[in-house]
Design a protein around this nucleic acid. Structure first.
Lengths: 209, 209
DNA sequence: CAAACAATACGTAGAACTACGTATTTTTAC
DNA sequence: GTAAAAATACGTAGTTCTACGTATTGTTTG
């Protein structure tokens, strides 16, 4: 693989143009480009390029969904993700799909070249800068202390259910729910106030599955 | 002004390249480019271009801060904002700073040309698409019903303060705070539960100034 | 098969919030 | 300058949440 064939995809016209121009200037073999996920997957299927450089957020199919389909179909196309996403969980998800590179859009263009160069040697590339730019998932530390039932109680508490209502939903006594709440507060060392648990529940609601 | 002089600025290399290439291909007179706000302002000051095309989110100075400084210094440079920001409030802020165009990065490249063409005729340009893409600020409807003190009470309630504590902070009786809470609940027709107000407060906390 | 953990449930007491009032003073607005 | 709105404060009663217990029954897991 001397001059790898490449397809690219991004739904932002400016970025797609920037990427395409850059690659062509450097004499890469850009077969075609797509402006959404469906088009991109079609290109991969039809052209079987060596490399696909994909955005994550795209209409119809995300870059990760494309990576998954390629993996399932055992395509040989190697995938580089170029994205704004700094979420560590998304990065981990990408890695588990066997992608060959993960480049943040704020990185210099040379990072893209580094990445392609690595792939020519059949090794994946993750910028040393990357790890310091990723944003760690916070909060879950506290949630790990809680049992599934306790999380369920939190979830319903965040939805403004009383202990009685939660008990009815889970077919247990309101006293049991009160005990769960008490245990949660103790574990997490919440303030001894009426609304502490509800406010905490509301705060971490997004992280409760 | 036949061939306007232009400077551009964006902290994302890919976008900066896309924009610069595009403009040069179309034979615009691109004097220079900057990759952060400070550089961009320097360019405007030094080169006094006819047009500056700026991103909002940039290190050191945002595009809006640059627009403000240009306005205060009575520079003649006309400003076009190119951004991801769909917040209506940011759009309104931009408009009040007298910018000549507001283009979303997801828009086609021709929108940029339309914008420049309008400026050549000394009129501002806002894409008809724009309004449907902007995300309205929601919620405030309910908040408009509340008095300043009531909002203050909500703010402190969201921070898990009791009526007594809020009273101490605002130098009034806890009974007064309870009355405020009661009035809020009545106005907003909240459920008659202990945690309703706290959870509501937490929900709209971001909109309380 | 124990020991640890999780889930279940109750007793009692107190604190905070809620609802429904009334009522006075201050501020805002026409 | 008066009427409306907002802010102040209290009474009473009822509900819910919390804290501090105790205690039984399952479920994991080494």
């Amino acid at each position: 693989m001397k001059t790898p064939s490449i397809i690219i995809a991004d739904d932002h016209p400016l970025i797609l143009k920037g990427l395409e121009d850059f690659l062509k200037e450097r004499h890469y073999n850009v077969l075609d480009s797509a402006k959404n996920g469906k088009q991109a997957y079609q290109l991969i299927e039809d052209l079987q390029p060596d490399i696909a450089i994909l955005d994550i957020q795209m209409p119809y199919l995300t870059g990760l969904q494309i990576a998954e389909k390629c993996k399932n179909n055992e395509f040989n196309t190697k995938i580089i993700i170029i994205t704004f996403e700094k979420d560590e969980s998304i990065y981990n998800q990408a890695k588990s799909l066997g992608i060959y590179g993960y480049v943040l859009k704020e990185f210099a263009l040379t990072e893209i070249e580094n990445c392609i160069a690595s792939i020519l040697e059949n090794t994946s590339y993750f910028s040393p800068e990357l790890l310091s730019h990723l944003e760690k998932e916070q909060v879950p530390e506290e949630l790990k202390l809680l049992t599934p039932t306790e999380k369920e109680v939190l979830k319903l508490t965040a939805k403004n259910k009383t202990a009685k209502e939660i008990g009815d939903i889970l077919f247990v006594s309101n006293r049991t729910i009160e005990k769960h709440k008490s245990n949660i507060s103790k574990k997490l060392k919440l303030e001894c106030k009426h609304t502490s648990l509800a406010l905490f529940a509301k705060e971490i609601e997004p992280y409760l599955e």
